[in-house]
Simulated assay, not measured.
Amino acid sequence: MTTCAPTLLELQCAVRRDLLGLADGDASGYVVSDGLAPQARLAIYRNTANSTLLTALKLTYPAVQALVGSEFFEGAARLFIEQCPASNALLDSYGALFAEYLAHMPEAASLAYLPDTARLEWAVNEALHAVDAKPLDLQRLAQLDEADLQAVRFLPSPAVRVLESPFPVDAIWRAVLSQDDSALATINLAADPVWLVIHRGPLGVEVSRMAKGQCRFTAALLAGRSLHDALADVPDAETSVWLAHLLASGCFVDVCLSNQASSRTIGRQDT
């Protein structure tokens, strides 16, 4: 009785499950021993795959690694890789859940600021690798009449994020990456919370602080709420100035009008 050869897809899926260490992974039946056991051969590729994911995490979270040390970081990263295998081949997208993993890791509990530092590094990573998009042409806003302004929504740039933390994670991040021990020593973890906007501009990724109201307003616009609703939640006379700053910084790529019944784009521009 002959056994049908697997299709290429079946073979790839079997090898993938084995490389990721999944319970149902067993590609050894498709591997010729030739002096080395099939599982030993597969282990070579599994180690290579894990090393690649470990390198990806190191590149994304350099400040976290510096804060906890290489040995601790590698141990935590390898456990994370076992529990959260890669879902695609795009390494820049791997590690989104690492901050949450650190937040629930008992060994890291004494470093309460560590998860938010990781969240900041992930936001920087997302902004850095986001697709390019042409900033909104501010002249197009002149097309809006008073009624339009009640329903206008801003479509965010793929390279902008907001983050709130009870810890000064931006100061920690900068001090660690610049290896400025004196600056790190002066950081007060009990200081006021920080609200951050992370955005990739012409000079690279920028991390800037903003006021709490500005953060609420920015987050509302990024979430797709209308300008009218976002302003209603933050009745601050300075909000219009902050909006001008966001627009000038290229944080939006398009505008559209929407109401309860329909949504339409105003003279949509190519991105």
Rank of each mutant, 00 (worst) to 15 (best):
T2G: 03
T2E: 07
R17E: 13
L20A: 12
A27E: 01
S33N: 09
L36P: 03
P38L: 13
P38T: 10
Q39I: 09
L42N: 13
I44Q: 09
Y45C: 12
A49N: 08
A49K: 10
N50R: 14
T55I: 04
A56Y: 03
V64K: 02
F73Q: 01
F73N: 01
A76D: 04
A77V: 06
A77R: 06
F80R: 02
P85I: 09
L90E: 14
D92T: 15
S93M: 02
A108T: 12
D116A: 00
L128N: 01
L128A: 03
A133L: 09
K134Q: 15
P135L: 10
L138A: 15
L138C: 06
A142T: 15
A142R: 15
Q143L: 15
Q143C: 13
D145S: 07
E146F: 11
A151P: 02
F154L: 13
F154M: 10
L155A: 14
P158V: 10
V162W: 05
S165E: 00
P166R: 07
I172H: 00
V176H: 08
S178P: 07
Q179T: 10
S182W: 12
A185Q: 09
L189Q: 12
A190P: 00
V194L: 01
V194Q: 06
I198A: 02
H199R: 14
P202N: 15
R209M: 00
K212Q: 11
Q214I: 06
C215T: 03
A219C: 03
A223V: 06
H228Q: 11
A230P: 04
A232P: 05
V234E: 12
P235Q: 10
S240F: 09
L246T: 03
A248C: 07
D254Q: 15
V255S: 04
C256D: 08
S263K: 12
S263G: 11
R264A: 11
I266Q: 06
R268W: 05
